[in-house]
Simulated assay, not measured.
Amino acid sequence: MKTFGLIGYPLSQSFSQSHFTEKFKQENIEARYLNFPITSIDEFPGLINHHPYMGGLNVTIPYKEKVIQYLDELDPIAKEAGAVNVIKFDWSKPHKPILKGYNSDIIGFSKSIQPFIKAHHKGALILGTGGAAKAVGFALKKMGLTYKLVSRTPKNDDQIAYGNLNEKTMKDHQVIINTTPLGMYGDMDAKPTIPYQFCGPDHLFFDLIYNPEITAFLKAGQKQGAAIKNGLEMLHLQAEAAWEIWNQ
């Protein structure tokens, strides 16, 4: 039986396993989808050796960047974005698969947020600097929006510290995207520390989190009159894009 799966840590709130298990059942696909909660990316080679019938993997926090070192090839978009959330296994050669990295987060995010982007949305703030943030930044750039990454410890001119966000910054960046885990189920009162009081009806708040449905971050935006969107649709879209990649 062909195996698909998800690597990351922790995986207690993972959507992927239930999504693909139901898909395989509904479409009579002889395959299984397993969670692989590895505590270090160093465990990745051993994982591959223990599952010789692997068809593909999804990658989530915190390995979307770290896994690249173990891949044989990168899709040009994933390479430019600098992050991978889908790995395709090519078994055309005997004994050892060729591993190629892709990024379906970009596809899912773009299709999900596009209907909400208005003419006045010129700039965005991306909360977080990890692999998901890189995918979001790549997608925004393709849509013609400028962006700044918001970090606790800025490393370059493309990043800004949370403490340096002010009224002008918030008005110049009317799309706010949370790529951090703050507000996930289990810590639902948490939210990024941004000056919400400077946001209003012209703002769009997008949270990659999907559980809970409305995070504390989205509630704070909604209170200011902003449009809000959670990450559930993005998740479904990126999962279907991953399936297409594995089977192309």
Rank of each mutant, 00 (worst) to 15 (best):
M1K: 08
T3Q: 14
L6I: 10
P10C: 03
Q13H: 15
H19I: 14
F24Y: 15
Q26G: 00
N28G: 02
E30C: 01
I38W: 12
E43L: 15
P45G: 09
H50D: 14
P52Q: 07
Y53F: 04
P62M: 02
K64L: 12
E65N: 05
V67Q: 08
I68Q: 01
Q69Y: 01
Y70V: 00
P76S: 08
A83W: 12
W91G: 01
N103E: 10
I113Q: 07
I117D: 12
K118Y: 06
A119T: 11
H120G: 07
H121V: 09
T129H: 11
G130K: 10
G131I: 04
F138H: 15
K148P: 05
K148M: 11
A161P: 06
K168P: 00
H173R: 02
Q174W: 00
Q174Y: 06
I177N: 07
I177T: 08
G183M: 08
G183W: 09
A190C: 06
K191E: 04
P195Q: 10
Q197H: 07
D202A: 10
D202C: 05
H203T: 13
F206Q: 01
L208C: 05
Y210H: 13
I214R: 04
I214F: 01
I214K: 13
F217S: 06
L218A: 05
A220T: 10
G231N: 04
E233S: 11
E233Y: 08
E240Y: 11
A241N: 06
A242F: 02
A242L: 01
E244R: 13
